[in-house]
């Protein structure tokens, strides 16, 4: 199955292991992701905080590129996904705004391609059962807190995906790897997003609460589907290197599929996940 791929800026730097693992795992599972050529930054929070039209125009320019490529667009970063999906929603439902955006970006919206998060693509286009069939190294004994964060499921009238208060899609994929996803109450709490740089103290308090709650639920690791969540969970924790590791969901699927390159992803983590994986005989 062929899909277009919008990696987003973080996946070119701080979240490179997310990019590498996403591409490897998708390919191993028969999902071909083709990066759209010359994509531009979605504008993120800075655009929607500053200029409403720009906050739609930057994603619309990328939707225009994806439209040319003619395949549904998959977005691994929850923040980029939020911007692109919202813009897609506006283009479909607000004719006045659509005309304005078509003028600014210089394209005609056809509505023929859809926008989805990587988590949704794995859930809908591959599915937990298929992953489970392909597992060669079940992640038995690994207790996980599946952390969705804010924007993979919210706002629900735009995403139309999973349950916004108690999402289960990531739990299902992780169960497919043989790991044990746990019930906990902080699945969709906020990690502080891009405020880490500007109001670090607040973000540190938010992250330590998340980690405490995951540990209290009995988790040995947190698993995410967003580069901002993963980075904050690793670098905005009180005593930097200690505590439970934070994985990208694609890394754990790759490990369960027995992909050799998984070691090179884990080597990029700030909080070393290898001691945990070794203790479960999942890494050498």
């Amino acid at each position: 199955m062929n899909l277009s791929y919008y990696p987003g800026c973080s996946l070119e730097s701080s979240a490179r292991e997310y990019n590498l693992s996403a591409l490897s795992v998708a390919s191993a599972l028969g999902l071909s992701l083709t990066e759209i050529e010359d994509w531009i930054c979605c504008g993120a929070t800075s655009a929607h905080s500053t200029n409403q039209l720009l906050a739609y125009a930057l994603p619309a320019a990328n939707i225009a590129l994806a439209q040319q490529a003619g395949r549904d667009l998959v977005v691994p970063c929850a923040s980029c996904y939020n911007r692109l999906k919202k813009t897609d929603h506006v283009l479909r439902n607000d004719p006045a705004r659509r005309r304005q955006l078509e003028e600014v970006v210089n394209f005609t919206f056809t509505g023929r391609i859809g926008v989805m998060s990587l988590l949704e693509a794995f859930t809908v286009r591959i599915g937990a059962e298929e992953i489970s069939r392909r597992v060669v190294r079940p992640l038995e004994g690994l207790r996980l807190a599946c952390y969705y964060g804010c924007l993979l499921v919210r706002p629900h009238h735009v995403t139309g995906f999973d349950n916004p208060e108690n999402p289960r899609s990531l739990d299902a994929l992780m169960a497919g790897t043989g790991a044990r996803p746990l019930s906990w109450s902080y699945k969709t709490e906020c990690c502080g997003a891009n405020l880490g740089l500007t109001v670090g103290d607040a973000v540190r308090q938010m992250v330590s609460r998340l980690l405490e709650m995951a540990e209290e639920a009995g988790a040995q690791a947190i698993v995410t589907a967003c580069p901002l969540c993963q980075m904050n969970l690793e670098v905005r924790r009180p005593n930097n290197r200690n505590g439970i590791p934070a994985f990208y969901f694609t890394e754990l699927i790759g490990l369960a599929l027995g992909l050799k390159e998984s070691g090179s992803w884990f080597a990029r983590h700030i909080v070393d996940p290898l001691p945990l994986l070794r203790s479960l005989s999942l890494a050498s």
């Binding site: 929070t45 804010c150 919210r154 706002p155 906020c190 502080g192 405020l195």
Partner: peptide, 8 residues
């Protein structure tokens, strides 16, 4: 932080 929990 634009987490959108209030609106939902």
């Amino acid at each position: 932080s634009s987490c959108e929990i209030c609106g939902s």
